[in-house]
Design a protein around this nucleic acid. Structure first.
Ligand code: MN
Ligand code: MN
Ligand code: ZN
Ligand code: ZN
Lengths: 136, 136
DNA sequence: TGTTACTTTGTAATCATTACAAAAATGAAA
DNA sequence: TTTCATTTTTGTAATGATTACAAAGTAACA
């Protein structure tokens, strides 16, 4: 994942005006790296920004996704999660503890058939199972 | 994908009592192979079963998923789709025409790191981009 | 300071899904 | 066939996530 020293500069560089709210929301995603839901982000920041509206979280995330600095994780149909790491990487969801783990994979050697000559924009690999801790 | 001659027998073999509704809903998934939403299935069957309730479609699909004869496709966060093909295969969504295409890939050679010793239950590979037709 | 554009908020609307209780259908005794 | 229990289906209400929208607040700048 990209290293970012200055959040405001990073937002600026991606054509997003760095308001306090936007900086805090991006900072939350970038530092926690826990693939939060809108609810998670809102609860996590309500102490820092007491008047924070959930609508602002929604609007801001939508903007981040449009500008390409955040990606959506759709591993479950009932929870939309967000990730400030937009590099191609996989997500493992433990069906016991619910934890979401990042993993890397070789997306140049997937041996894909049946969609030759299709333009690929994004690749999402999701795996469900039991994590190491929960196996004990 | 598995070949099924008799829908009722197939449901029975998977511990699902083959009511008319269940047969029709599974048949729809199996023959159309178009990864429908609940809405699609309901609209598609309302002619065949005029009194069909959307609740029945939801209940039936939930049962099918629990029994393992149908899988959920979560490629978009605003639409849950269903697939009677539970074999491991990928899904390509064209962002222009919206079509969803099946494709095969080599899931034995993904070069996965960082989740060694995790138990894998399901693997979902989703790709978004532009399909062959829409490139013209 | 005044004006304008942008951002945030709060509420209402929408949409998908679930809960639940009543009605209908099924199926096995009697 | 009739009876009775069980299962299935239905329809409506409730829930929860997301979006629409207009008002209020803030920032930029002449
Ligand atoms: Mn991630
Ligand atoms: Mn499929
Ligand atoms: Zn776990
Ligand atoms: Zn297309």
């Amino acid at each position: 994942m990209i290293e970012i020293k200055n959040m405001a500069e990073y937002l600026n560089a991606n054509n997003i005006r760095p308001s306090v709210h936007r900086i805090k929301i991006f900072e939350y995603l970038y530092t926690k790296r826990n693939h939060p839901t809108v609810e998670n982000i809102h609860k996590g920041l309500i102490n820092v920004i007491p008047a924070l509206s959930k609508t602002t979280v929604y609007n801001t995330l939508k903007q981040f996704v449009e500008k390409g600095i955040v990606q959506i994780i759709n591993i479950e149909d009932n929870e939309t999660r967000y990730d400030a790491d937009t590099s191609t990487h996989g997500h493992f969801k433990c069906v016991k503890c619910g934890m979401l783990h990042d993993f890397s994979f070789d997306n140049t050697n997937l041996g894909i058939k049946d969609i030759e000559n299709f333009d690929i924009h994004q690749t999402h690999l999701y795996i469900k199972g039991i994590c190491k801790k929960c196996k004990n």
